[in-house]
Amino acid sequence: MKIEAKNLTAQLLHRARGNPPSTLANSAISNCFPGLEFDFRNIWRRLFVGIELHEADNIVVAVDPRSPYKSLLHHRLLKVADQPTIVPVVGPLDGGTGRAVRLTSPPDNPDGVWTLEWSNAMAAIVHKYAGRKTRVRCEFTARKAMNAVGLKTDTKRKVVYLRVRSIFAKNSGGATIPVIDSEAVLPGELTQSLCSPWQNDYRECLCYYWASSRPDYVNVELDDDGVSTGNNWLSLKREPKEYFLNAGSPALITYAGLFREWQSRLRFIIGGRDAD
């Protein structure tokens, strides 16, 4: 048995003998809001050497006190190598005409912008600069900004050049190995922004967008009207088949049920149905 030392994907996704598929990174969701297994957004917090970013926002949340950039605390990073970190939010306004307009929501978001996830927004920059000596041009708001700020041409910016950290470790020969670097992410940080306890998420967040890990609609079949019918995954009873739309419905597992009895209440779903 051999693995190419250069084949980083094979090392990341190596199925060690005896390990089921659910141990691998490709079974863990990454549309983290906040996440299930990890809040993987946290891998980007220390992307720029000297400052620490919020995992889900373009605000600087901490600075290295020895760093020349310590004055950037609570400033917002607007552009990196001319790539915006934010996009305008556009759509029809509630109670409006149906015409698409800039969706501003003062006071939190007077400019109507949204911070992109670092993973995608910085992908090209990471590829080009990470772990290299070359610094990248970063444009911050000139002042501290606790609320979202748009890219207005007349907005004063503070421009600094920062080094981009590699989130991966290197071996003694300097080659990248596919393990997250111990300085970029500390133990506990990949899970720190998840729900506490995790069960809470299953009830209040109704995070349907992780349905393959945390199902929503199960035991589905065609009903008499030619459309689907099925159970909420969280339904206490499976018959009669009904989908409850009220998250607070007593027909669904309660918080207490999740805290105490999640192991017997939450059903594994195989083939779309309750496993026995």
Binding site: E221, L222, D223, D224, D225, G226
Partner: peptide, 10 residues
């Protein structure tokens, strides 16, 4: 099949 079998409501 299921639609045809169930009821006239289909």
């Amino acid at each position: 099949d299921r639609m045809l079998a169930t009821s006239s409501r289909a």
